[in-house]
Amino acid sequence: MKNPHQWIPVFLLLSLFAPPMMAATGVDRPIEEILEPIALTDRVYYFYGSTESR
């Protein structure tokens, strides 16, 4: 079995990209999901954003 620690540099490299990718897509959900209009009345809609704290 290969040394599992060999993956650590890969994870570290990926972690460099993870925060901006999450943020650009709506923090904790894809922005396409956030931007699904939810009807409150016949005229009023809202977009249910993330509950993330940032």
């Binding site: 922005i31 956030i34 209009p37 409150l40 005229r43 009023v44 809609y45 809202y46 977009f47 954003g49």
Partner: peptide
């Protein structure tokens, strides 16, 4: 975008909130 925004469909166009 992590906040709520909204919009209102009126007879003369749409009003966006935020």
């Amino acid at each position: 975008m992590n906040n709520n925004t909204g919009f209102v469909v009126t007879d003369d166009g749409v009003v966006v909130v935020g």
